[in-house]
Each structure stands twice: as C-alpha cells, then as structure tokens.
Design a protein around this nucleic acid. Structure first.
Lengths: 128, 128
DNA sequence: AATGACGTTGACGCAAACGTAAACTAATCA
DNA sequence: TGATTAGTTTACGTTTGCGTCAACGTCATT
C-alpha cells in the first residue's frame, strides 16, 4: 500500500534540476508533496507532474502553461459547457505545437545544409 | 540597387511584435539597421534575422541562442579547427531539436486522447 | 499654426524562474 | 561526540525580455 515515495534530492537528481527548483514549483502550487515531519515526500503522481512540467519547459512553455496543459488531462468534473471549451483549447494548443514542429523541422533542415557545407569543405582532403 | 528597406513599424506589424521589441533586439546587438538620419532602415537581411530570432523564440530558445544558431549559418571564415567544432555544435543542437520534437509528439498524442475522451463524453448525449 | 501619425532616446518597472546565502534541524557515520 | 550529510525556512539577488512612460523631433495635413 505504502507505494513508493521519493525524496526531493532523488527527484532533483533524476531530472537534472536543483532542489531549489522543485521547492519553487511547490511555492507556485505546481506540486503538493506529502510530509514526513518536515521532509517532503513525493508520490509517483508528483513525480509525473514534475516530469510533464519539465517537458513543457523544454519546448518553451511557461510553468503555468504546463500546468494548464496537465489540467486538461483530467476532464473529471466536466459539464458539456466545459467539455466544449476544453476541445477549443485543445485545438489552440495543437496549432501551436504543429507550428513549433514546423519551426524545428526548418531548423533541422538548416543544420543539415550547414553540416553538408562543412563536410565538403573538410572532406576534400579526406576521402577523394 | 537600392534594394528594399523596411521601417520599424512595418516589421513590427508583419511579425506581430511591438517596435519596442525590435529596438530591444538592437540594444542587444541582434540587429544593426541602417539609418536615414535618425530613423532606422531595415534591409531584407535584417528582416530575415528578426524572423529567425522569433522562430527560435517560439520553440523556447533565448535570444542569444537564436543568434548563436544564426551565426552557424555563416561558416564564412572557417579554418579546419572551427569547422570541426562547428560540426560538434550542430550535433548538439540537432539532439536538442530532436528531443523537442519528441516532446511535441508526446503532447500531441496526449491531446488526441483527451479530445477523444471529450468527444465520446459529449457524443453519448447527442446521439442517444 | 496646430493636430496627428510616426519616429527617436533614455530610464524606470516588472514578472518569471530560479540562484544563493544565512541560519537552523535531524539523522547518521566514524 | 563531533563532523558530515541531507533536509528545512526565510529572504534578498539576478537574468531575461520586454512594457511603459516621458520628453522630444519630423513630416503631412487641415
């Protein structure tokens, strides 16, 4: 029953952030770990939340945006109203994500070109 | 010869940013527009730089990172040393971009799931 | 000549996302 | 038992990326 918990430094180490960062997320209400006396205890669910937040960060989302996104994943107490507006929000997000994907592909293509230039500039001496 | 130039507000409008933003980029040395007396005149090259900077922003790059990336696109005065280190940098960037792409795909998949849930939840009332 | 529209240079303000130092506790290792 | 290690709170500091005046110049109308 006592499913696994994590200490703050375990998670910090796993995700490559400082403990300060994780505490900061708590200050902002992004996670609410349990306590063993003074010490914070993180459940697997907490761990996932942090993971998702950091994933959002990697593509330039603000912490709040990540949280908003995470909240979408839980259409628990939703009336028809809310479900419809949720669908709209999803559409907006999807558009942004697709734009970002395009941006990334463009950049990758650019990098390929430059790399090719570099290699022919170097390769002339090597292979042929 | 006198190839086209743009005013600051033209570019601001085109890219959906304020003129303040573009001046800020100049303060930081990201662009160096010509002058007609006091007024800034942006060349097509300046315009492209700004465009690339904003593209970087969309996927969470800092302004400086965008500039670093743009500088890669110009392997002008490169000796073998620099070409090799450039290739290394490109590899690093590519890895990051691929990770970001994966992050985006994961999020898109998540959104698809949630949307499906929403739609079945709604559809049950509609159809029956 | 006055009214806008557009441009300029400071300079201060501000939110986000932590960094960093101080000062403390609680458990553990030697 | 003293030292080290990991945790805690409080609080001020820092960087980035602009927003927001203020105070002024320059044209083109009206």
């Amino acid at each position: 029953m006592g499913s696994k918990t994590y200490t703050i430094s375990e998670l910090a180490k796993e995700f490559g952030v400082t403990t300060r960062t994780i505490r900061f997320y708590e200050e902002k209400g992004l996670v609410q770990p349990l306590r063993d006396g003074q010490k914070r205890l993180y459940t697997p669910a907490d761990r996932v939340r942090i993971k998702l937040i950091l994933r959002g960060k990697r593509i330039g989302m603000s912490l709040q945006e990540s949280v908003d996104l995470i909240d979408m994943y839980d259409p628990s107490r939703n009336n028809t109203q809310q479900l419809n507006s949720l669908i709209d929000k999803i559409a907006v997000r999807r558009d942004r994500l697709l734009q970002q994907k395009k941006d990334i592909d463009d950049m990758l293509a650019g990098l390929d070109e430059v790399q090719a230039l570099c290699q022919t500039a170097l390769g002339k001496r090597k292979k042929k």
